[in-house]
């Protein structure tokens, strides 16, 4: 990973983390101060999605050129995406407890997120079940592409069907994110850098994880 990207990530976090806790936020009924979770919870999903997309790109590249490095990268990105997904669920549950008065509810987006995580846990099971490295890479790349396309279609389209009742903003008659700002303190100035920061951090984590796994594999091959 390029150094300037790491510097960008750290710089963005130095801006985002203090601002997330201390910055001025728009005042909304029911939400009040919990609106700060916007910088943690919502951004996690954006980052997870970008990481999974990158993982699929590596999967496709693996199928084209059969370079095992691509498979290792794809795996590392998926692992980090799964971690982000779990953080997203937990932060979402905390948020839901304080605004909707329940940890879990029958909301299409909650269930979509849970299913995505289940599908990628199945991806891990699939990987663990294949001893041969080349076969594992091939099959998990195919599964990864298949799962990603289906999940994107269903997670992105299903909750947006007009009739779906959702407690999330912008759906089921709730005000969208566009209402969460007023001229004085525009929350997007923190929200977008937060997406950038967590995404870059995710790539960084994935990169480190990939390098550790790669070195482990090489040293096993040599010994």
């Amino acid at each position: 990973m390029k150094t300037y990207l790491k510097i960008t990530a750290v710089a963005a976090m130095f801006w985002v983390i203090p601002m997330a806790f201390l910055g001025e936020v728009s005042v909304q009924p029911i939400l009040h101060e919990t609106i700060r979770n916007l910088y943690w919870h919502v951004t996690m999903w954006f980052s997870m999605f970008i990481l999974l997309l990158a993982s699929v790109v590596h999967g496709i590249a693996y199928l084209r050129h059969n370079n095992p490095i691509r498979d290792e990268k794809s795996l590392a990105l998926t692992q980090v995406a799964l971690l982000y997904g779990c953080i997203g669920i937990v932060t979402g549950m905390i948020w839901a407890r304080f605004t909707w008065d329940t940890f879990w509810t029958k909301d299409p987006q909650l269930n979509g997120a849970a299913i995505t995580i289940l599908a990628y846990l199945a991806y891990m099971v699939l990987r663990a079940s294949i001893p041969d490295a080349r076969k594992r890479a091939e099959i998990s790349a195919v599964y990864g592409i298949f799962a990603f396309v289906l999940m994107v279609v269903l997670i992105v389209i299903l909750p947006r069907m007009q009739d779906v009742d959702s407690l999330h903003p912008g759906k089921g008659g709730n005000p969208g994110f566009g209402n969460y700002k007023d001229l004085k303190n525009d929350m997007r100035l923190v929200f977008y850098p937060a997406i950038l920061a967590w995404t870059l951090l995710g790539f960084w984590l994935a990169n480190l994880s990939f390098r550790i796994q790669h070195l482990t594999r090489i040293s096993h091959a040599q010994s």
């Binding site: 299409p108 269930n111 979509g112 299913i115 289940l118 599908a119 846990l121 199945a122 099971v125 699939l126 079940s129 294949i130 076969k135 594992r136 099959i139 599964y143 298949f146 799962a147 289906l150 999940m151 269903l154 997670i155 299903l158």
Partner: peptide, 23 residues
């Protein structure tokens, strides 16, 4: 292809089928 029995196909398939069934 992965050399596992049909048991694995249920584990892999169920999460992917859930959105279909939700719809």
């Amino acid at each position: 292809v992965s050399g596992n029995g049909p048991g694995l196909s249920a584990i892999l398939g169920l999460p992917l089928m859930v959105p279909t069934l939700m719809a």
